[in-house]
Design a protein around this nucleic acid. Structure first.
Lengths: 222, 222
DNA sequence: AGCGAAATGTCAGGATTCGGTCAGGAGCGT
DNA sequence: ACGCTCCTGACCGAATCCTGACATTTCGCT
């Protein structure tokens, strides 16, 4: 499910957007000011953010800057007021991916949202080593032969894969895969990692892709 | 220039549709009631009609019947209210070519408009395995012999088919087939899938096309 | 190098969740 | 009233998941 975060203080506009995006099949969350938007971006890691630049208190520019400083890399579509050419340019310089000028046509906005997501979505088939992942069907193959992954295993694999080789902390894994907000002390994560290694590594005892980072978490080396 | 006639009494909705269709490059005309719609269909001979079924006075069904009686053969896309299964089926029987359930997503509507206009040129028959789907008549055959599908079953099949082999989540199915916006906890989807398998699979216990993706939904493998 | 604590790996059974199946009943059109 | 369709809740088996005990590894410290 593709998740979209709308950061917009105008409740009516936000409501309209939410409705239409939901009808298109997105999972939508709305934040009414910049601070909350930033919080939700950190916590929920949406796939796309729609950001009004004109916000009370913490304005859109600062939200953008903070986002990029924290390396939250989701595409951002900014909403600018008509004629504010300078805002638009400044927004794009700060790392926005596209802009829409208010008042905008719904269709235009939806088209841009789709375009951004499509551009951002990795190729339909991801791969590392001799493992291939087909996200459309949730099918995984190793050296060409199908590997049956249980749901949690697949989710875990994706969570690791999407971080592009960077370490994913246990807490992050708990959040992304298990939906918990706090760390868990059991061996749950390790067990699933072990299972993944068994199924995807040539030698599970000497993993070459699914690596342990002691005291932190795991990472997936391509 | 492709011309579209919208027959819709809700002025706001008609306005929104007109705008978006015009942006897409169609020439659009709006009629606010059935009688006027019929007049314009006769006089302007549009390439496609978008017809709300719920109209004051002369309702959509009568417009449809009159159209077909006069052998005005342009494709007709009907707008039905959520849950009005019967209306939809009745409309299709009266010669409508496709339907969209309100509230609908613009992108979905545009996609269907395009599909209808395209189909007008060459009528497509979809197929997977030994199953064939004729969208114009909602008829399905397996190994050449007709299979009777209930409306929900057909809609479900189409929802799966249109995703081109990708997984369709339960939530998506709920939205696309049932028009709900939130997940439902009952066995509704599963029973209908079971029925589809019974009717379309060689061995329903070992489905080769309609596949379960645990924790997510179903997918249709061609 | 040797030690110990902490972190991670391993494993197996028991608990849980999920999907398949079914029958009953409501709703609706004929 | 009848038949068709659809929804629902209960039941069941199987897949999946979690857990806690134990083994092993890692790493800082002496």
């Amino acid at each position: 499910m593709t998740r979209v975060l709308i950061v917009e203080d105008n409740a009516d506009l936000a409501y309209g957007l939410r409705n239409n995006l939901e009808i298109e099949g997105y999972e939508v969350e709305v934040a009414a000011d910049g601070a909350r938007g930033l919080d939700r971006a950190r916590a929920a890691r949406p796939d796309l953010m729609i950001l009004d630049l004109m916000l009370p208190e913490l304005d859109g520019f600062r939200v953008l800057r903070a986002l990029r400083a924290e390396e939250l890399a989701m595409p951002v579509l900014i909403l600018t007021a008509r004629g504010e050419e300078a805002d638009k340019v400044r927004g794009l310089k700060l790392g926005a991916d596209d802009y829409v000028t208010k008042p905008f046509g719904l269709l235009e906005l939806l088209a841009r949202v789709e375009a951004l997501l499509r551009r951002n979505v990795r190729r339909a088939v991801d791969a590392f080593g001799d493992v291939e992942i087909d996200r459309a069907t949730r099918a995984v193959t190793r050296a060409g032969t199908a590997v049956e992954l249980a749901p949690k295993e697949y989710d875990l694999l994706i969570a690791l894969f999407d971080r592009d080789g960077a370490v994913v902390s246990r807490l992050d894994l708990m959040r992304r895969v298990w939906g918990y907000s706090d760390a868990v002390v059991t061996r749950t994560i390790d067990t699933h990692v072990a299972e993944l290694r068994r199924k995807l590594e040539v030698d599970a005892a000497k993993p070459r892709h699914i690596l342990t980072v002691r005291k932190v978490g795991y990472r997936l080396k391509r």
